[in-house]
Design a binder for these strands. Sequence first.
DNA 1: CATTCGCGGGG
DNA 2: GTGTACGCGAATG
Length: 737
Amino acid sequence: MREGWLLDIYPDGNDMVLWVTRGGSARSFRIHYPPYFYVSASEGRLDALRGGMEEEEVSISTGYELKRTRIRDYERRRVLRVEVESGRFNYLIPRIQSLEERGYRFFNVDVPRAQGFLYERDLFPMGRVSFSSLGSDIESLDDRFSTDYVPPPLKEVRMDVQPKTSINAAVESIRFEGEEEFELDGGNEGERILDAVGALDELDPDVVYLTGRDLSQISRRAAARGISSELRFGRDKTRALSRGRGKSYFSYGTVYYKQPYSPFFGRMRIDPENSFMYEDSGMEGLVELARLTKIPLQKSSTTSPGTGISSMQIDQAYRDGLLIPWRKQEPEEFKSALQLLECDRGGFIFEPGKGFYTGIGEIDFASMYPSIMERHNISPETVLCDCCDGADAPSVPECGYHICTRRRGLIPKVIAPLLERRAYYKEQVRRGVEGAPGYDMRQKAIKWLLVTCFGYLGYKNARFGRVEAHEAVTAFGRDKLFKSARAAEEAGYEVLHGIVDSLWLKRGGATEDDYEELCERIEGVTGLRISLEGIYRWIVFLPSKMDPQVPVLNRYFGTFEDGEIKARGIELRRSDTPGIVKRAQLEMLNALSEARDLEEYVERIGRCVSIIRRYSRWIREGDVDVEDLIISRRASKAPWEYSNLSSIAVSSLKLHRTGKTVKPGQFIGYVVTDSSSPDPWERVEPVEFYEEGSRYDADKYIDDVIRAGATLFEGLGYGYEFMRSLVTDGSRQRTLA
DNA sequence: CATTCGCGGGG
DNA sequence: GTGTACGCGAATG
């Protein structure tokens, strides 16, 4: 075997271990690649450092290279590359950190080693490679930016552990599903676990689907049986399962929980329930992501898209001979994307009055912010560059910053192929071309890379962030939205509202063709792609609490001409709304979708009342699935840190009491058992303990359904109380019952 | 009533 | 990459 797909790569001592698969059969080889970093300092001090390192034998080798050390500086300078014995790397970190105070600057210290290897060797995970029999030279047979690549034929297996009562419960059976299905339930617990290791060896899959929860259970039980070191689920028999703890971290005002990363060395373990990318865009999306970002698939399946775009930027820096500073140099004020979004709200004012409209068209810019960065060459080093003169370089609207005309920025270099690629995939899907289902998953994966790249420009600790670049993007955005609105008005449209990358317009009798024509005009004016999202039969913008006369943009719903429903911010979009409530609200929206005007809309309140009554009956009579009653929320604190005995606090405390650890950021599902009980402990039950057929608070769920119905008539003079009175109207209810 | 808590949004 | 939007609705005490 001399060819295959690069499946997995990880450091081991001073080597990198590479696994190449042909689908169910893989082989590995090692390439010498010790950890290294770069140092810059004045000439004399660099020589002194080199001498010192060699004398103390902390380095394997040192050598001078010419590299760029600052993104805004294009001159290559002499820097020292230091290769270190892997065992001494961690010991060295605090020592070199102290040297920073004495004028030394360190680079590429915290670049993940596997990725660094791939950047340098021009290889990428999931790419086709050839190698010599000894494995000493490996070569890419693939183009990272090709769109018609052959994805690796991966052999897959699903593993499932029973029982799931507790993460500490003894493993009674492990089920395998792949080419064949079988269950390991004989022998004692330790034997069952070791049989699972043996079964993987025999099946030899490339991909193992196994949830983090099940893996933790196996890991804990193996520890209890003293066989942790025998948990070698990977192809690499020298590496046992690592036992990490999950981590909670804070981001954008929310606590997130990150599962411990426990890779299967030489295979890929995918957690189908805790991989955002897998859930959103499947294995096709993950393969696309790993190829583009160079983060080994197993790892990128657990990380955020932001890590992916960051990796692509570092890869570009390697290409440009630019070193990666250890820590970001210039800390600056951080403004979140959403904060800016808030500022933009003042851009256009809604006409006051009722929130019900008919004949409204919505047009949206495609990937607006990334397109602006690409088109206007916005990057940390191009905005207010040192090489161009402010007078003749193009300038940013409002703030007047000039942008470099001599050099293409690092960020646009990364974004351009992504935009082009996504547009190509979307076009293929639209035309129904063969391979299109996979193309749709691929374009979705790219979408997330594009969405995050703007946020990173304004994030003060991002490696390639700069607040002025961030400002430039939003300034261009406002300018383009404003110009679009003007173009729309010139074409006879009334601009109802505009926000960031969307405009809601009205012109009596305007057809799809009219809107397409307008979009073309706007593309001409702004240079960006814009398209018709759809023409609404009707749309309702819910009133703001601050000023009930003014509708708000983050809570609205409506029906397009083709009957498709679009809703934002209402119950059915919330992840903590129980399924039964979501279904009822969606059914009501469908009933309303046929309405042609306000009168017809209001008339249909009767149908909504019937729907609510039907759901009430189901709920009251116990004709519902437990699944549909579960409320799922993210715990922001440890169980004992809550100040109120709220539903989430009680649920996490109940779990905690029985030894199920609940980390901040983890999702907790619970059923409301008796919301009005004076004893908070009686009010809710976590799903883990909730038994089929036990009681739930029917009144509470019915109330939620009524509320969800009332939302659809909010601002039209019918509130919750009114809806409730219609539903509970005695005589009619008796007729129904 | 004040306070606490979790969610949204990009396709 | 540990970044602490901000407005809202619902629940607690």
